[in-house]
Design a protein around this nucleic acid. Structure first.
Lengths: 222, 222
DNA sequence: ATATTCGGATAGTACAGCTACCCAATGGGT
DNA sequence: ACCCATTGGGTAGCTGTACTATCCGAATAT
């Protein structure tokens, strides 16, 4: 198919497809002549994956490029590809140049990870993220310790075990690796959305608002 | 305290504080003269909250402004403030102008929510987000139905019940409302980070990588 | 044969979140 | 009483991200 059909198939404008080609997100089609290239089903799939990582996963273009490069690298094992995906998902943390309190948060995060028996690379960006979250919560007067984190760690251990269990390891590498990445990113979003929905529902029940009402006196919809 | 001290206290540059004042994120200090204003502990707390919502919660400035306006509005009940926070957290979804398949995803999301007995406003943005996630997963060949979502819904129900349970409802409204917002945003991030950590750990264990190695042949970092 | 369409490249746009600069009015130290 | 650093207030500029618009010359469809 030509670029126009690829665009029609995926609802991605042609200039945007060209942009993705330039950025190395999308492999170029097979050149049939100097000014003509042929795209296939793989391009459609790849483009959908890009949009999923971008629109649902909220990954920046540059991170998507890295993830896809890892997916396409036949040399890389599953674990390495997943690591790349994890690294890419991690938003750039701007650690405070603070000294003591920040260091304590980092140590606390590391201690927590060790205590759970989790096998995490020392340079994993998620360590920093966890430290940042705990540090910020402490500064806001809502510190979380190992005890109060337990419900969360238990929940994610159950979920992750489940997610790993349903991986299609018997198929070709590309399929498995792609699903691994998709799952890593998309299931996180699903979990987040469900949490907020459950939150709203619990709030409605707990604060005793009848369905259809909104629980305040001034009914000013922004 | 003066603006310079407020800046030193919170590690936020003075121009940025001025920017937040302009955007209505931060109430102005008490004017002691035409060119002098006095800031207090409340401003420090508010500034820290802003940075938390911005850096950890990744909320855009405009959304933070809405959330804080709701927090400060004494007229609003807990549920309404939470609703505002939920609305603000929800990233702007660009629904595909598609017809049938998208509508099916929306219906599926609504059916799911109803089936769980959750009490969700019909216009809640999280509905759209859930639909988008399910739609995208289906297009990527990894559809999730009520059955495969069950582990996730069970997990969030447990977590949310726990979160609501620890709210300080006996204190002043401002404290409770602030913690509600902080918890809504920050606990989501904590859960996400923990999930990725558990994911990495499970991947390391499952794919049989010894600690310190990285599970591929070509040891090319980044 | 000629009007489209294509690939490839360059430049411009829109938005977010700051950051820099300027100004006149203080006001604390001397 | 003096004077220079600081403040509030405002406008304008910067940086990064994700596109979007336009141009060009070759090739293909009709």
């Amino acid at each position: 198919m030509r670029i126009s059909q690829l665009s029609a198939e995926t609802d991605v404008p042609i200039p945007t497809i060209k942009y993705y080609l330039r950025e190395g997100l999308l492999p170029s089609g097979e050149q049939t002549s100097a000014t003509r290239a042929e795209y296939g089903e793989a391009h459609v799939r790849r483009l959908r994956l890009i949009r999923a990582l971008l629109e649902v996963g909220r990954l920046p273009i540059a991170s998507i490029a890295k993830v896809l490069a890892a997916v396409d690298d036949e040399e890389l094992g599953m674990h390495r590809v997943l690591g790349t995906a994890h690294y890419a998902i991690a938003p750039a943390t701007t650690p405070p140049p603070d000294g003591e309190e920040w260091q304590r948060a980092r140590d606390e995060a590391d201690r927590l990870i060790t205590g759970l028996g989790w096998r995490i690379e020392p340079w994993a960006p998620a360590r920093e993220e966890l430290a940042q979250a705990l540090y910020t919560l402490a500064r806001l007067g809502m510190p979380m310790d190992e005890e109060s984190l337990r419900p969360y760690t238990r929940a994610v251990e159950t979920l992750v075990e489940h997610e790993i269990g349903i991986l299609p390891l018997d198929g070709p590498r590309e399929t498995a690796v792609e699903r691994l990445v998709i799952g890593t990113v998309m299931h996180g979003r699903v979990l987040d959305v469900l949490r907020r929905l459950a939150h709203e529902s619990a709030s409605a029940r707990f604060f005793g608002v009848a369905p259809g009402e909104n629980g305040d006196k001034a009914h000013t919809d922004s």
